[in-house]
């Protein structure tokens, strides 16, 4: 699965990057985020775009796994 790294980017960049990457890989995506705000925003965007999201903690970061 393709992965994008949004660590260090401030909002709305993580959501914008997710949107762009999903346009290229509509079947699914892994998104690496490093703060709660970005996690919440990306999760909400994925939900409204019809994806199911699995979140796992990776040290201080989070991996959001989006599937159709």
């Amino acid at each position: 699965m393709n992965r994008i790294d949004t660590r260090g980017m401030s909002c709305p960049q993580p959501v914008l990057m997710t949107k762009k990457a999903l346009d290229k890989n509509p079947e699914g995506l892994e998104i690496l985020v490093d703060n709660n705000t970005a996690k919440g925003n990306v999760e909400r965007f994925l939900k409204s775009s019809g994806y199911t999201t699995k979140i796992t903690e990776d040290g201080e970061d989070f991996i959001l796994e989006a599937k159709k």
Binding site: C11, P12, V15, L16, F45, S48
Partner: peptide
């Protein structure tokens, strides 16, 4: 952010 997110993501 409110108007921006509406324009960007319809959020």
């Amino acid at each position: 952010g409110g108007s921006r997110d509406m324009m960007l993501f319809k959020d």
